[in-house]
Amino acid sequence: MRILHTSDWHIGRSFHGHSTLDALSGVLDVLVGQVRENAVDAVIVAGDVFDSAAPSAACYPVLSRTLAALADAGARVVVTSGNHDSAARLGFQSALLRADITVLTDPTSVGTPVTLADEHGPVHVYGIPYLEPAIVRHLWPGVELRNQAQTMRHALDLVRADLAERGGRSIVAAHCFAAGVDATPGVEREIRQGGLDVVPLTAFDGPDYVALGHIHGRQQLSERVRYAGAPLHYSFGEAGKPRGSWLVDLDADGLSSVRWLDLPVPRALVTLEGPLDDLLTHERFDAHRGDWVRAEYTDSTPQPDPMRRLQARFPWCATVVHAPAETRPDDGEGYARRVRAARDDAEVIDAFLAHVREGEGASPAERELIRHVLDARAVAEAHA
Results as ranks from 00 to 15, higher is better:
66 T>I: 06
268 A>R: 15
35 V>H: 03
277 D>R: 12
46 A>E: 00
48 D>E: 00
268 A>I: 03
353 L>V: 15
109 S>W: 11
252 A>L: 14
365 A>R: 08
268 A>H: 13
244 G>W: 07
294 R>Q: 08
337 R>F: 03
362 A>D: 04
254 G>Q: 13
17 G>R: 06
312 A>V: 08
228 A>E: 02
357 R>M: 11
314 F>S: 02
304 P>N: 14
78 V>S: 08
155 A>P: 06
330 D>Q: 11
359 G>Y: 10
201 L>K: 01
342 A>W: 01
50 F>I: 03
139 L>C: 10
173 A>M: 11
125 V>Y: 01
379 V>G: 05
161 A>Y: 07
362 A>R: 04
285 F>H: 05
222 S>W: 12
339 V>F: 06
364 P>C: 12
383 H>D: 09
5 H>V: 06
101 I>L: 05
178 A>T: 05
323 A>H: 11
62 V>Y: 00
128 I>E: 01
183 A>W: 12
74 G>E: 10
246 W>M: 07
329 P>E: 08
226 R>C: 02
51 D>I: 00
53 A>N: 01
319 T>V: 15
289 R>M: 12
231 P>G: 04
119 E>M: 09
158 L>W: 14
19 S>L: 05
254 G>N: 08
152 M>A: 14
198 V>S: 02
302 P>Q: 14
327 T>R: 14
323 A>L: 09
128 I>R: 02
193 Q>V: 15
7 S>F: 00
331 D>V: 08
199 V>S: 03
192 R>M: 09
250 L>P: 07
48 D>R: 01
35 V>E: 03
229 G>M: 00
90 L>C: 07
192 R>E: 10
312 A>F: 02
129 P>L: 00
108 T>S: 05
2 R>N: 08
244 G>R: 06
268 A>T: 10
285 F>Q: 08
31 L>T: 00
120 H>S: 14
264 P>L: 05
288 H>P: 04
92 F>M: 13
242 P>H: 08
36 R>I: 06
10 H>D: 00
343 R>P: 03
319 T>L: 13
38 N>E: 13
96 L>D: 11
262 D>R: 09
297 Y>N: 02
315 P>S: 09
330 D>C: 05
348 V>G: 03
60 Y>K: 03
39 A>K: 15
70 L>A: 11
174 A>V: 03
113 P>C: 09
380 A>G: 09
338 R>N: 04
167 G>M: 03
291 D>A: 14
139 L>F: 07
279 L>N: 01
315 P>I: 09
231 P>I: 00
176 C>K: 04
340 R>N: 12
149 A>N: 02
99 A>E: 13
214 H>E: 04
56 S>Q: 09
343 R>V: 13
91 G>W: 02
161 A>M: 10
355 H>M: 06
313 R>C: 09
356 V>S: 08
236 F>G: 00
248 V>Y: 05
84 H>W: 05
192 R>C: 11
218 R>N: 07
118 D>Y: 12
153 R>A: 14
24 L>S: 00
